[in-house]
């Protein structure tokens, strides 16, 4: 009986995590090149119940919901024209390479600017690299040719914040660079809202299941053993 309590609780915990991720997605609805996240949910291993007297199997019972891997939706989002000469967007797949103090990282946020030494840098001040891995220099006219930016395919890139992804590049990406444009955030507001409502109601269902089990336990602890059935 009390197994059900914990099964319902695992479901509620899983929905909390899902809700945290939806909140993060919605907070990043304006972040250029942001990719939304989902966590897969799977069931824990099932238990086989058997009759203790005869040993014959009765059936299985689940153990609740386990959180799986976080999946980042890498689908390229739409482009927003900004007209700024140092804004770049990748049409199609691929990432810009950025040299950070922690090593080379990858980003799809192409909102760059010039540094005091004339290099093309990200908002955090890290140099943007060309296809050969060298820093790019902003020309005297304040521009950088879109074709000079390196675009790398990074399979299985993982997020690490500040719009950066880490991973190992392999091969040339299919995407092309567009100047004066930024990739929009990959957050679909309508879908996020629907997911949020669904998640909240699932959370509530877990609560209802726990309350129902609680009432049954209450009955068991107070009514069973009284002769009248009415304590």
């Amino acid at each position: 009986m009390d197994l059900g309590l914990y099964i319902a609780a695992t479901g509620m915990v899983a929905e909390q995590t899902r809700q945290d991720q939806i909140s993060n997605d919605l907070a990043n609805a304006s972040t250029p090149g942001y990719k939304s996240e989902r966590t897969t949910q799977s069931s824990f291993g099932e238990l086989l119940l058997s009759n203790t007297a005869t040993g014959s199997p009765i059936g299985t019972v689940g153990e609740g919901v386990a959180l799986g891997k976080t999946v980042t939706d890498m689908t390229p989002a739409g482009m927003q024209d900004t007209g700024q000469p140092l804004d770049f967007g990748i049409v199609g797949t691929g990432f810009f390479a950025v040299k950070t103090p922690q090593g080379v990282r990858y980003t799809r946020d192409g909102q760059f600017s010039a540094s005091a030494t004339g290099q093309l840098v990200t908002a955090a001040g890290d140099p943007v690299l060309d296809a050969q891995g060298n820093p790019l220099t902003v020309g005297a006219n304040g521009r950088v040719a879109a074709s000079s930016l390196g675009v790398h395919e990074v399979p299985g890139a993982t997020k690490q914040g500040e719009n950066l992804f880490s991973g190992n590049p392999s091969g040339k990406a299919a995407g092309t660079v567009r100047q004066g444009a930024l990739e929009l955030s990959g957050v679909d507001a309508a879908k996020a809202m629907v997911d949020m409502i669904g998640s909240m109601r699932t959370f509530q269902s877990g609560q209802q299941a726990i309350q129902a089990i609680d009432q049954t336990l209450q009955a068991a602890s107070t009514q069973v053993g009284t002769l009248s059935g009415n304590p």
Binding site: T17, D20, N24, A27, N28, S30, K69, G161
Partner: peptide, 10 residues
């Protein structure tokens, strides 16, 4: 045993 990530906003 699984590692799920949640972000801290924007």
């Amino acid at each position: 045993g699984t590692s799920t990530t949640t972000g801290a906003g924007a």
